[in-house]
Amino acid sequence: MTAETDAATRYFDAIAAALGGLEIFMRDDRSPLYRHGIVAKVVAEYIARLEKSFSCWRNRLGFMESFRISRAESGFPVFQNVLELENDRRSAGQRLAAIPEPNEIRAEMADFILRHKAFPAALQRSMAERLYLEDVDDGSAFGPFTLAQTAKVSVNPKTGRPFYLVHWASFDGAANLPLIYMATVEDSSTPMIKQLVGRDGKLDEGVEIPLPVDGLLNPELAHRFDDFTEKNSAYSLSPATIAVNLDKDFETLHPKQLRRVVLGPFYSAGITEHNSTVAEVLSKVRKVENAWLLTWTIQEVYSKAERPGRRGLFSSEKSTQEFFINTDDLEAARQGVSSYEKHALVPHEAYQALYAAGESEKIFAGYKVHILSKGQVISDV
């Protein structure tokens, strides 16, 4: 095993353990995110997509040697890898047709070993490519951009408008970070109010809505909404900027809350280099599969009031949201959010090493720390 292969194996093992631990945390009903059950459920769906991506990349290394991660910044794969997955997904069906079925390849491998008394490296590469393309072909990996879905529909009793919980995701090409977005948006368009709001001012139970619905529930705005989210999902845009842009661009859509989950940075001993203190301590962890640290940030901006629109003879103005930015908190103001939470997930052995080195307080200052131990996540340490 070469040094590069060994490092790749350690990286994939570490990120698999981290994402598996994060999924346990999200699905645990004791998790602080579970007070918003649907939020945890949505995030868990995107974690599953990321796990699929890493499974694909691991198989890809069996026949292609190009794989790079952002060692000094995010600790996640560089954007080029995400684009390659997407390109391969588009051509997977055509390429699979040219590769024999797995059983045929296995039979050929056995025959090759018996006849040549050697390892069938070319056939092994064909098998790896076959498994990779089958994995990529189903479209469930975390792509450069994942189109919006409507996960929940209800009615605001104060305004009489239906509102949707919509989510989407992107992999930021500049920061090399996976980003998950969730927005609560009210809809004041007359057709949707007539269709969704009953005489009692509540959601009309006679209307069947097969949730989740691909795209924004309002069919007249769905394509425009997809275009908007694709152009307004960069990490460089603050949540407040995205919310204000959404409010401006759609006359009948009124964003009441926008959440962004930023996954990363990810730290792995001997591989990532973005924090020398963390790297030094993690390198002393006895089991390499426990020598990692995953962080994520949940950002939120919400509307504190709606300024009514004005309709005049010669001009009109749509109603606009007044978003709350917590200027009393310098970090919240810098991020352009009403509030934020920073989280860290770390294996028990790595946490012990950081604690023993006297670095845990400095490294985890401002973070909610969650410890992965024996398949369970312990929070509030």
Rank of each mutant, 00 (worst) to 15 (best):
T5N: 09
A7I: 11
F12D: 03
A16V: 04
A16M: 09
G20R: 06
D29M: 06
P32G: 04
V43T: 06
V43E: 10
S53P: 01
S55D: 12
W57R: 08
N59S: 14
L61A: 06
G62W: 04
F63D: 01
F63V: 05
E65G: 11
S66K: 12
S66I: 11
E73Y: 08
G75E: 00
P77T: 05
V78E: 04
F79G: 00
L83I: 09
E84V: 10
N87C: 05
D88T: 01
S91Y: 01
G93H: 01
L96F: 03
I99T: 04
P100Y: 04
A107W: 03
L114A: 12
A121T: 13
L123F: 03
S126K: 15
R130D: 06
D137V: 08
F142C: 07
G143A: 13
P144D: 06
P144E: 10
L147T: 14
A148S: 13
V155F: 03
N156H: 10
L165M: 13
F171K: 04
A175F: 11
L179K: 03
I180D: 07
V185P: 05
M192H: 00
V197S: 03
G198Q: 02
G201D: 07
D204V: 01
E208L: 13
P210S: 07
L211F: 11
E220S: 15
E220N: 14
N232V: 08
A234K: 12
Y235N: 08
Y235A: 08
S238R: 15
P239K: 08
T241P: 01
A243F: 10
N245S: 15
D249L: 14
F250L: 08
H254K: 15
K256F: 14
K256S: 15
K256Y: 14
R259N: 14
V261P: 02
L263C: 07
T272S: 09
T272Q: 05
S276C: 02
A279M: 09
V281T: 08
R286L: 07
K287I: 05
V288P: 06
T295V: 07
I298Q: 10
E300A: 13
S303A: 15
A305T: 13
F314A: 06
F314N: 09
T327A: 14
A333D: 10
S338K: 04
S339R: 13
K342C: 03
L345Q: 03
Y351K: 01
A353G: 03
Y355K: 12
A357L: 02
S360A: 15
S360H: 12
E361R: 13
K362T: 12
F364Y: 07
G366P: 01
L372K: 02
S373I: 07
Q376P: 00
V381A: 07
